[in-house]
């Protein structure tokens, strides 16, 4: 991902060591190190801080109100407290969100194309995972997309991993024939259990992150994160040329990637149409 950002800079004419220097700081997975690392960058008087995920951006925001900060993979920048609005972030922070309300609909569309017989899809969601408005937008967009696809939706809640068994029982008793999982953190960290439960209940499932497909899920459709890191360089460029971060709207993903696990398809006795396989960015054999 760091390389994608550097490539983005190169595309804009920056040459490391000639007209730009990048000071890297890596918390090595330890959240508590982030504030000190962000403070180091402030002490170095860098021109801009790139802090891709939420905790890094929050840590940077806490140590400077003046140095511009660019994030690259924040799900809900408004409810995280990074910006006041997507259109006009205000303050010294802006960047790219990895979430868009259309994502759920796009996932359903991919699922329907991969498994055309789907007519009742369960939507696994976690109440409270996002800000209220974001959550409402996500669920509404799912309904709209499902209607257009002729798929009936069943919304099933899981507040934590302890709710998974009950959630899958609800899906099977309502005769759901597929599942889409919303892009929340808990579902990512619990992907192995979700993948196992989907297999056990023979539910073709579309996930929003490819890691779930690497773990054995049937398919994923989600933002191309390398592209977002590349685009973060565009923000840096504009800021270095004088733009104020607070005036630069938060952008959402524009490129998405489709990953399919052929082994899982076979285990579910599914034949994924050739047209879908050809379109996939990766097919795991």
């Amino acid at each position: 991902m760091r390389e994608a950002f550097r490539q983005g800079l190169r595309d804009l004419g920056y040459v490391e060591g000639r007209n730009v220097v990048i000071e890297y700081r890596d918390a090595e997975g330890k959240h508590e190190r982030l504030p000190a690392l962000a403070a180091e960058l402030v002490a170095l008087k860098v021109d801009v801080i790139v802090a891709p995920p939420t905790p890094a951006a929050l840590a940077a925001k806490q140590v400077t109100k003046t140095i511009p900060i660019v994030f690259a993979a924040v799900s809900d920048p408004v409810s995280s407290g990074l910006v006041t609005s997507l259109a006009r972030p205000g303050g010294n922070v802006t960047g790219l969100s990895d979430l868009t309300p259309e994502l759920v609909g796009k996932c359903l569309e991919q699922l329907k194309q991969a498994v055309p017989g789907v007519s009742r899809a369960a939507v696994l969601w976690q109440p409270g995972a996002f800000g209220e408005r974001t959550e409402k937008d996500l669920l509404k967009a799912a309904e709209v997309a499902a209607r257009a696809l002729g798929v009936r939706l069943q919304f099933v809640e899981a507040r934590g991993p302890d709710d998974f068994d009950r959630a899958f029982s609800k899906m099977t008793s309502a005769r759901a024939d597929a599942l889409t999982v919303l892009p929340t953190a808990m579902f990512v960290s619990e992907r192995r259990r979700l993948v196992d439960l989907a297999a056990k209940n023979r539910l073709p499932t579309v996930f929003p992150y490819r890691e779930s497909v690497d773990a054995g899920g049937l398919m994923s459709y989600g933002p191309n994160l390398a592209d977002m890191y590349r685009r973060a360089a565009t923000y840096v460029d504009k800021i270095l040329k004088g733009a104020k971060p607070g005036d630069l709207p938060v952008e959402q993903p524009t490129k998405f990637e489709l990953v399919i696990n052929a082994k899982t398809a076979k285990a579910l006795s599914l034949t994924i149409p050739q047209s879908v396989l050809l379109r996939a960015d990766q097919v795991i054999q």
């Binding site: 730009v20 990048i22 000071e23 890297y24 402030v42 170095l44 790139v50 995920p53 799900s75 992150y209």
Partner: peptide, 30 residues
């Protein structure tokens, strides 16, 4: 010469698990 600071939670990890950690951290900071 312009200087860009780049701070990550974990360069060696895939991003999705990071997103998970990110949200936990965001909640902890609230």
């Amino acid at each position: 010469m312009r200087v860009i600071g780049f701070v990550v939670l974990a360069a060696s990890l895939a991003l999705a698990p990071l997103a998970a950690e990110a949200q936990q951290a965001a909640k902890a900071l609230e």
